[in-house]
Amino acid sequence: MLSTRILTAAVALPLAVLAIIYLPALGLAMAVGALMLGGAWEWAALSGLGHTGRVAYTVLSAGVMALVLGLRQSDGPVSTDIVVLGLAALFWLCAIGLVIRFPAQWRTTLGRRPLALAIGLVVLAAPVVAVAYIDQADEGPLLVLMLCLMIWGADTGAYAAGRTLGRHKLVPRVSPGKTVEGAAGGLIVAMLVGVLGAFVLDLDGWRTLAMALLGAWIASISIVGDLTISMFKRSAGVKDSGRLFPGHGGVLDRLDSMLAAAPWFVIGLHLVLLAA
């Protein structure tokens, strides 16, 4: 019901903002990690594992997240941050092709349980790593909040534009409800969030443009995250990934965009800093 969705959002969104602002970097990473473990449980279920398998996969995911966070400060030729975020970002680029071609090649890619479970370990750890990485900066909480606002803005803009202007289906074989007009609305709102963020951070003109472009990319790759979880649900024959959030579904239903956006936001921030 719509009232349940609104009530859940009214409770969850302020809690999320307060956590971003007031929790220390490690505390926020652990909070995101707890959500991602819920996502691991659902990812295992969508991959076809039974109860025992889901428990084992969730425990394994917790171990991977703890290991990655524990190794963040260790000396080595390549940072674990870079490895995890790079692999996750690469996967989401590949997922674009899977979404466009669905259901072709599904059975030979994410439809293969071992491959899906292995990829899940990386993509579920990536938001935890990204938040820990971003939050260590001087403007860390503001940047994490900007990431969330880009995602939330894209989702809100897509919903509003899709409901009022939506005519042309985006990827009907994956998600019949999404439209090209809705996607465009999401991109515009996310770009505005990027411009606002640049203003708050007191960035110059070129970096403001770069932040707007980053907003557009975050909105775009967020759609890919959403559609990828939709492919999993269609393959599994379920409507929602879980029931943690009343009226909204499970963790993956709500944080599918974050899975794809978080690693690319970190990469995008580095590119913004390079803008002349």
Rank of each mutant, 00 (worst) to 15 (best):
Met1Arg: 11
Met1Leu: 14
Thr8Glu: 03
Thr8Asp: 01
Val11Arg: 06
Ala12Lys: 07
Pro14His: 12
Ala19Cys: 14
Leu23Arg: 01
Leu23Met: 08
Met30Gly: 05
Ala34Leu: 15
Ala34Gly: 14
Leu35Arg: 07
Gly38Tyr: 00
Ala40Tyr: 02
Trp41Thr: 06
Trp43Lys: 03
Trp43Glu: 01
Ala45Trp: 06
Leu46Gly: 03
Gly48Ser: 03
Arg54Trp: 03
Ala56Gly: 07
Thr58Lys: 04
Val59Asn: 08
Val64Cys: 11
Met65Asn: 06
Ala66Asn: 03
Ala66Ser: 09
Leu67Val: 10
Gly70Gln: 11
Leu71Thr: 03
Asp75Glu: 15
Gly76Trp: 13
Pro77Arg: 11
Ser79Phe: 10
Asp81Ala: 14
Ile82Met: 14
Trp92Tyr: 13
Trp92Cys: 07
Cys94Glu: 10
Ala95Pro: 03
Ile96His: 05
Ile96Gln: 06
Ala104Asn: 11
Thr108Met: 08
Leu115Arg: 07
Leu115Gly: 02
Leu117Met: 11
Ala118Gly: 15
Ile119His: 01
Val123Lys: 01
Ala126Ile: 10
Pro127Ser: 13
Ala132Gln: 13
Ala132Ser: 15
Ile134Glu: 01
Ile134Pro: 00
Asp135Ile: 05
Asp138His: 12
Leu142Met: 13
Val144His: 04
Val144Ile: 15
Leu145Thr: 08
Met146Gln: 12
Ile151Pro: 03
Thr156Gly: 03
Thr156Ala: 11
Arg167Leu: 13
Leu170Tyr: 01
Leu170Thr: 03
Lys178His: 07
Ala183Pro: 00
Gly194Thr: 07
Val195Met: 13
Ala198Met: 10
Phe199Gln: 13
Val200Trp: 11
Val200His: 08
Asp202Lys: 13
Thr208Ile: 06
Leu209Pro: 08
Leu209Tyr: 13
Met211Asn: 09
Gly215Pro: 07
Ser220Asn: 11
Ile223Lys: 11
Gly225Tyr: 02
Asp226Glu: 00
Thr228Asp: 02
Ile229Trp: 06
Lys233Thr: 09
Lys233Met: 09
Arg234Glu: 05
Ser235Arg: 06
Ala236Gly: 08
Ala236Lys: 14
Gly237Phe: 09
Gly237Ser: 05
Lys239Ser: 08
Asp240Trp: 06
Gly242Asp: 06
Arg243Leu: 13
Phe245Gly: 02
Phe245Ile: 10
Gly249Ile: 09
Gly250Ile: 07
Gly250Pro: 00
Val251Gly: 02
Asp253Tyr: 05
Arg254Glu: 12
Ser257Asn: 10
Ala262Glu: 05
Val266Gly: 02
Ile267Ala: 15
Val272Ile: 15
Leu274Lys: 14
Leu274Pro: 10
Ala275Phe: 04
